[in-house]
Amino acid sequence: MKEQTLKIQPYHSSDGEYVTLVEFAIEAARVLDQTYNPKTEWSERVNECVPYEYEISRFSFGEEPQIIRIIHKMGYEPKYGGHAEDDVFIVCEGLPEDMKLELRVLRFYYDPRFIEIHVKGPDKEVENVLQGFDEHFNVEHIPDENEIRRTLQTARAALVVHAWRAAELNAQYILKHEPYNAIATMYLGIARAAQGFEPEGENLLLASLTLNPRNVDAYYNLGLIVLDQGRCIFASDVFKKGLSLDPENHPLHYHLGKTLERLGKLGEALESYQMAVKHSPNPDQIWGYTGKDFTLEARESVSRLQEVIETGKLEDKDECEE
């Protein structure tokens, strides 16, 4: 006997789609047990709901003992924007005691949807089921412009909440079909660097800038990567290049100030911090603002550097490697 799981990701289907899964489950179950032939009859749905948390629907196809049970769960998260989880689980009951067949399709927050099969039975039959599963569901999908746009939005949202792996998977999916997509290349670079692969992330951001030299966000994130490595001169050049394209960019001014301060250029650093304050996106510090806001940090830095310059008393600072 053999027991195995196979997963395909990404998998493309609509939320709550189960008919295709039931049809395949019947075919696969018959490979394991030729007598498996559930009656063509759908049960009524039994629903369970907790408002703003989840909704679960349970129903079945067939009759005891040969029955296919379907569970569809929709999870909700207001901060995500609503329907954050869509989970369809199917299990074949009535197979011989030493056999098993389960299917699952899951979309969870920012992770691309996947389909998974769990099967147990005689070795040859299990291999045939897995081969049929791969042939049936692992098919080439060509995304249209709307899907590319939605996937980019999902990748960006994943970056915002530091879901690095999810951002990486979504960016890779786009680049598989559009290898010269500058935004997806940038998102992939950010995600890889955040997971500890800084050289790869840097190269991807440089590639993104080759594809689109006016991408201010790419300059910003490239600057962050090299600044974190102590490459202050390079970081300074990168931030300044971004500011040449967007002179009122608040985050760029603030991080240029941090870079110049580490280089010992206190006067220039003070000017950058002051510009960050001047171009604050949230000067009144309104609660609930979700953008990049370094206003408080910039104000503190302005006061601190003014005192340092007036008194001549230098503070310890992070060293630069260049």
Rank of each mutant, 00 (worst) to 15 (best):
E3D: 08
K7G: 03
P10M: 12
S13E: 08
G16H: 04
E17C: 14
Y18A: 09
Y18I: 11
F24E: 02
E27N: 13
R30I: 13
V31C: 07
D33H: 14
Q34N: 08
E44M: 13
V46S: 09
N47P: 04
C49K: 14
C49W: 15
P51E: 04
E53T: 12
S60R: 06
S60T: 04
S60V: 07
R69I: 14
G75V: 11
E77M: 11
A84R: 05
E85T: 14
D86P: 06
F89P: 00
I90M: 03
V91P: 01
C92I: 14
C92E: 02
M99T: 08
M99A: 08
E102Q: 14
Y109W: 12
Y110R: 04
E116L: 13
I117V: 15
G121C: 11
G121L: 12
K124D: 03
E125N: 07
Q131S: 15
E135V: 15
H136C: 09
H141T: 10
H141C: 13
I142M: 06
P143W: 10
T151R: 06
L152T: 05
T154D: 00
A157W: 05
V160P: 02
W164A: 01
A167G: 08
E168I: 10
Y173S: 01
Y173Q: 00
L175P: 02
L175C: 10
E178Y: 09
P179L: 12
Y180C: 06
Y180S: 08
T185R: 04
T185K: 02
M186P: 02
L188V: 09
G189E: 01
F197M: 09
E198S: 08
E198W: 12
A207T: 14
T210H: 01
R214G: 01
R214D: 11
V216P: 00
V216I: 14
V216K: 01
Y219A: 10
Y219M: 06
Y220S: 02
L222Y: 07
L224I: 10
R231T: 05
I233V: 05
I233N: 02
A235S: 08
D237N: 14
D237E: 12
V238F: 03
L243R: 08
S244D: 07
D246G: 11
E248M: 15
L252P: 00
H253A: 07
H255Q: 11
L256F: 12
G257C: 04
K258W: 05
E261R: 11
R262C: 04
L263C: 01
L263R: 05
K265L: 11
L266N: 09
G267W: 12
L270I: 11
E271I: 14
S272G: 04
Q274Y: 07
A276I: 03
V277E: 02
H279E: 04
P281D: 08
P283Q: 07
W287Q: 06
G291V: 13
F294G: 01
E297G: 08
E297I: 09
L305C: 10
T311H: 03
D316P: 03
